[in-house]
């Protein structure tokens, strides 16, 4: 009957559905996301901060973290510059096969990372398509830090491009035209007018790329050889230490990685007004 209202849903001033739905949402997230993250901190610090500090300052751990940061940095630098360039070309010029190029640039996100690593080995490895010519020259790409950078570039390739391109597309052409009529060269226009408008997109793209590269595992383990103190990145270190039953060591590095990701995410979240491009 229509006059008989459900008491649960129509209590004036107190909507039961609201707290219930929020609680349900958090209850679902708890075992899936929140507790795993919390466990890292709980276990990592259970033996005291001294033990944590010892694990984190171990040579191999420090090396792995540094290597991760450095390789991620270069991969990010490359992908942001290339993404900017590609976005400029693809939004300013129309040519045959333009859409094909856009799809190919976006492809690496859809490829499993292990496949990406495998593909790189088949190209650069000692018997690879290119590697077989480099090998006699004494140039080794695989099993070096370069391989890690290449793997990172591959798997994070479309991220910066994907953030920058839409901003390029929606950017008013009249700003650039105004700059041109005022007398600016293409380069001056790009530097003084286009780039400042892309500031937010560039920073966002860079942070996303960096965060993703920092955690890359699947392709890295194939191309790097996972040699401690040589080509072992932080995720590989965690995996190796865990395999060797060195749980506290793995845990300590895991905490650092989580904090780094958390930091990057906070920047993206807190600075979103600044990052918003007009």
């Amino acid at each position: 009957m229509s006059t008989k209202l459900s008491p649960l849903r129509h209590v004036r001033g107190f909507d039961v559905v609201r707290p219930l739905s929020i609680a349900t949402m958090i209850a679902i997230m708890l075992p899936l996301v929140l507790l795993p993250l919390a466990s890292i901190f709980i276990f990592g610090t259970s033996k005291g901060l001294d033990s944590f500090w010892k694990s984190i300052t171990a040579d191999e751990a420090v090396f792995a973290l540094k290597l991760s940061l450095v390789t991620s940095f270069w991969a990010t630098a490359f992908n942001v510059v290339f993404g900017l360039f590609a976005a400029y070309v693809l939004s300013r010029y129309n040519f045959r096969g333009r859409n094909a190029v856009i799809i190919i640039i976006s492809l690496p996100t859809a490829i499993p990372t292990a496949v990406a690593g495998f593909a790189l080995i088949l190209l650069w490895g000692p018997y690879g398509v290119l590697g077989r010519f480099l090998e006699p020259q004494g140039i080794h790409v695989m099993l070096t830090a370069w391989a890690i950078i290449l793997a990172n570039i591959f798997v994070t390739f479309p991220l910066a491009f994907g953030v920058i391109k839409p901003v390029f597309d929606t950017m008013s052409r009249s700003l650039e035209e105004a700059s041109a009529t005022i007398g600016a060269t293409r380069w001056q226009t790009f530097w003084h007018v286009t780039l400042p408008s892309l500031r937010g997109a560039i920073v966002t793209g860079a942070l996303l790329t960096f965060a993703r590269a920092l955690g890359e595992f699947g392709s890295t383990i194939l191309v790097s050889g996972n040699l401690a103190m040589q080509t072992q990145t932080a995720p590989l270190y965690i995996y190796t230490e865990f395999q060797n039953n060195h749980v506290p060591e793995a845990n300590a590095v895991a905490i650092v990685l989580v904090l780094l990701s958390f930091g990057i995410f906070s920047v993206l979240f807190l600075a979103r007004d600044w990052l918003d491009t007009e």
Partner: peptide, 21 residues
């Protein structure tokens, strides 16, 4: 001549002021 060498002042409908300046 390209636009930048003409010395023409264009006031665009949207004004096209540089937002970051």
């Amino acid at each position: 001549l390209p636009a930048r060498e003409r010395g023409v002042g264009v006031i665009f409908q949207s004004y096209a002021l540089f937002p970051r300046m």
